[in-house]
Simulated assay, not measured.
Amino acid sequence: MMKRIRITALFTLIVSCLLFNPHAAFAENRDEQTYISTSDYIDAVTNEYKRFGIEFEVVGDQESEAKLTVGDLNREIEQIREASRQAALATVDIVDLDQNQNQQVFRAMPYSKEYTKTIRATSVPALAYADITYVVQATVNAQTGTLISINNAYSYVSYAVNLESWQQTKLDTSRTYLYGNEFVKAHIVGFANFRYTHPSTGLTVSATVPVDHITLWATE
């Protein structure tokens, strides 16, 4: 049985951006039934995504016959904030042994072990998201429960909706120590590129969502 501890840090600059956004305030201070142009709508959405490090743009034809209101924009801005919050966070997952675990597992010495973690990159929930799984392959000493070597690491897309491509730019692995215990550490960085039909305007859009995640696994 494993237990998980999540440590989340939010940078001061990001907090400041969340507290004040002139584009969002422009929409929130107007009557929700007021119609707005497609270009104003897309500009506001693009700037909202930008606050979370996500590149959003219209691909191809920018003409839309959709009748858009301030209320539509406000709802989408709230959706973006909810979906993109994790992209603005520096997150570390620590997977440790349960202190109550006392089962003895007998293995040959040494033996191969895989450490895995799945994270989700999201542009729009249920419409544009990808589950990225990364794997670290290592050799562990069965008698001492210590790491002998880290042999390989890779990532792959385990499930996705409207994902155009996954681009891994870094996957660093190392041995580290925390609370006096040995851990395998992996730091993955990359971009999930989505392409889909924007639900409010009907326009074809693309969104590039950054991934930056660290996981530490107890070696035994």
Rank of each mutant, 00 (worst) to 15 (best):
G190V: 07
T201W: 05
D61I: 04
L10T: 15
L73A: 07
Y159F: 12
K170Y: 08
E55Y: 08
N193Q: 02
D212E: 13
Y177P: 00
L13V: 15
G53Y: 02
I214M: 10
T46A: 00
N193L: 01
T46F: 00
Q79I: 05
I42K: 01
A192L: 03
N47P: 00
A138H: 02
A90I: 14
M2K: 12
I214K: 07
N151L: 12
E28F: 13
I132W: 01
S149K: 08
T176A: 01
T38V: 15
Y156S: 07
T38G: 06
R195W: 04
R75G: 09
A44N: 07
Y196P: 11
Q104D: 13
R175L: 14
A126G: 02
S206E: 11
V59C: 03
G60Y: 05
R107S: 13
A192N: 01
A44V: 09
L13Q: 15
A27H: 04
F194H: 06
F20P: 05
K117D: 06
G53S: 01
I14F: 15
Q167M: 07
S16P: 03
A218G: 04
S64P: 05
E57F: 00
T34S: 13
N29H: 09
P22Y: 09
N141L: 02
L147V: 09
V209G: 04
R6A: 14
K170I: 01
I80Q: 02
G190M: 10
A9C: 07
R81L: 05
S123R: 07
E57A: 09
R195A: 08
H187P: 00
R6F: 04
R51Y: 06
V15H: 12
A138T: 15
V95W: 02
I7M: 10
A24I: 11
R175D: 10
I42Y: 02
A218N: 10
P22H: 09
A24L: 13
I132K: 00
R85V: 14
E55R: 02
T144E: 04
S123V: 03
Q143T: 12
T144D: 07
E182T: 11
Y134S: 11
R107E: 13
E63K: 14
Q167T: 09
I54F: 02
M1L: 12
F183A: 02
F26V: 07
T197G: 01
T219F: 00
T118K: 05
A130S: 15
A44H: 01
A25Y: 13
V184P: 01
A87H: 09
N47E: 13
F11W: 13
H187E: 12
L203N: 07
R107K: 14
T69K: 03
V136T: 09
V184Q: 01
G190K: 11
N141Q: 05
K117T: 03
L13M: 14
T91H: 02
E114L: 08
A83H: 05
A27V: 11
S158G: 07
D93L: 08
S165M: 03
A218F: 09
T118L: 03
Q99D: 14
V15K: 15
